[in-house]
Amino acid sequence: MTAAPDTQGKTATPQVMDKWRRRGLQAFLAITAFVWLVPLLWAFYTSLRPFSDTAERGYVSIGGTYNFDNYTQAWTDSEMLKFFINTMWITIPAVILILFFASMAAFALSRFSFRFNLLLLMIFTAGNLLPQQVIITPLYRMFLALPLPEFLSPSGVFYDSYFGIITIHVAFQMGFATFVLSNYMKALPGDLNEAAFVDGASVWRQYWNIILPLTRPPLAALAVLMFTWIYNDFFWALVLMVTGDQRPITSALQNLNGTFFTNNNLVAAGSLLAAIPTLVVFAVLQRQFVAGLTLGSTKG
């Protein structure tokens, strides 16, 4: 796996060998990282060039004009800000609700022992295994039939409303969030609850003031994950929304395409713009994100 040559390994002192191993590993990692970044860098490079240049010279070429025109055009043509705000109307409430409900479920499942405790957790986890698409037909029918008050949905039903989309996101992401959170909470010492109970704390107080503050790392990690997943979602809005003006950001990119003709350079610029919010969220919460990846892996 490392690039350290054999001859050196035989004769060199352990320290020297370590040094070479380390260098080999770093070279390997650098190359791998570069290979991963190539498509992104290429998209960035392409996005800086006007279509006429790449059309004449090909995408693998140097020269011509370089500027940020594609970015300004993508931003205005796709009305990206409007669709970005739409996405936030879905993503932020959904993430908050998921974390709130999942933490309550996880609290009950992990901190109390009762008969159907494990079964319930299994049901939550099993919900995760179900491919979302299999329920789309009944869900579509249900959404058309379920009424909602006017202030929650202009259409009067779940269909074609943010409320409906948020609901289905919450329903589907709850399973995973509950699973992760309950594993984390199980690892917290049981004495905490007992001590609080002895001091007269209600169940709500035990949850809100004792356990929840201790669960901050997985909550932050989940928030990042959920944000990314819901931000990138495209399926539910495709089937369950009809109002073009309310669509999420994934459809803004499609506004950049003509009926037949696609300016790939423009789309590259738009795609990179659309990717920025997830990158920002990741950068801000990076530490929690990495910690979150291994959460629950040692328990359960």
Partner: peptide, 18 residues
């Protein structure tokens, strides 16, 4: 206004829905 491709792909649900 719904983008061209989405409009086409969702025509079935669109026409049966609202």
């Amino acid at each position: 206004t719904v983008d061209h491709n989405t409009f086409q792909e969702q025509i079935n649900t669109y026409l049966q829905g609202r």
